[in-house]
Nucleic acid binder design. Structure first.
Lengths: 208, 208
DNA sequence: AGCAAACTAGATCAAACGTTCTATTCTTGT
DNA sequence: ACAAGAATAGAACGTTTGATCTAGTTTGCT
């Protein structure tokens, strides 16, 4: 269905109005916002848009306009615990990654979350994983699982240190090699007892 | 602020109602939905909730209720049009990126989408943007806008060719330089008339 | 030009809806 | 038990708002 300029304008207005205010506009809001001369013209065009499947109207209900966007699903707000690999406040007890404070959240589609038991997000600081194309400022989603395989990218806490870092994980006998993906950095090899692996990277998000 | 049972019920009702119908409930909707005896009781509690910062009300406006921090938000299924930079079927007419077929979708949080008018997703094929840390298999979200700035990563269609590729965009007089982010690849310099820029990368998602 | 369909204008009506007022009942502390 | 504040009830009022009707204007087609 081809949209007239007016109809396109109305669609845009309805969308921005709804996002802006949290509720859809009335017919008269649309009239004013799109400089349309009469409510009946708005109604007329809304009917066309509804017939075209671009929106759904609830009759006799104020602001009963819903844009039928593409199929919707839920996003979950995941706490962002970063920055990872920058120094966190000194901690003496074993770090429980779930109890770290966070004041920020990032929306993650439910589809991605559902595959994992428990997840958190980390803000990546620094370029220690740059060869794995994980850049400064990226947000990584960690699955808080104990099932770690060689080569996984993990959030590791060195007990001798006071920070959590992102490294590639390799088990080598009694020892664990934490391999940065950066030519200028050396692998860290520690006894398994001296490190806690809190989870592995399952998703990455980057805004531009 | 501690919530009474009734207030919690109201919050839940408002949230599910809004997600369900696409617009917030009226005071009388809440009254019915929460089995409250009077509109004034609803109003009374709404004022408390508003004072507590849990929602915002627009006075004298029907359904003027907006929850301030929704713990869930929507994701939109965005069609994945990829793979980008692999050969698409030969096309003779100017490519309208919106009409390309896609049988796959990816969920993108509404927060990200809302900042852009129209978006599509592309499956990245190949490593031409590897220095920008965009890897084979990543999914990039494109904003279909004409507002392209130098240095933006864009989806470009060379009219002499039959494929869409991801490149960094630089305008150089009458010509456009399409710069791969890969040391082994040469920039493509073409007349502005021989290329169509369909949108720029605004988000990147990568699963592991 | 002539006609039909698409579109626009403005007014009006009834229902939906937020607001407010007064009165009553329920809690809580002393 | 008593007072004071918190919460509830019910009604009434006025504005907002969707629906509708009639009439006029524009557009597209032959």
């Amino acid at each position: 269905m081809p949209l007239t300029d007016k109809q396109q304008l109305m669609m845009d207005f309805i969308e921005t109005y709804t996002i802006d205010r949290g509720f859809p506009p009335t017919i008269r809001d649309i009239q004013e916002g799109c400089k349309i001369s009469s409510t009946s013209v708005v109604d007329y065009n809304l009917r066309i848009l509804e017939r075209g499947g671009l929106l759904k109207r609830s009759r006799e209900i104020s602001r009963g306009i819903e844009l039928t966007r593409r199929k919707r699903s839920d996003s979950i707000q995941v706490p962002v615990l970063g920055p990872i690999s920058a120094g966190n406040p000194l901690m003496v007890a074993p770090i429980d990654i779930r109890t770290l404070d966070s004041d920020d959240h990032v929306a993650v589609p439910e589809e991605i979350i559902n595959q994992h038991r428990e997840i958190v997000a980390f803000n990546v600081k620094g370029q220690s994983m740059i060869n794995a194309h994980i850049d400064d400022g990226d947000v990584v989603i960690l699955s808080l699982t104990r099932e770690i395989a060689d080569g996984d990218i993990v959030a590791a806490w060195l007990k001798t240190d006071d920070e959590i870092t992102l490294k590639r994980y390799f088990k080598e006998g009694d020892q664990i090699r934490l391999q940065p993906e950066n030519d200028e950095m050396e692998p860290i090899i520690v006894n398994a007892a001296d490190v806690e692996i809190h989870g592995k990277v399952v998703y990455l998000m980057r805004g531009y």
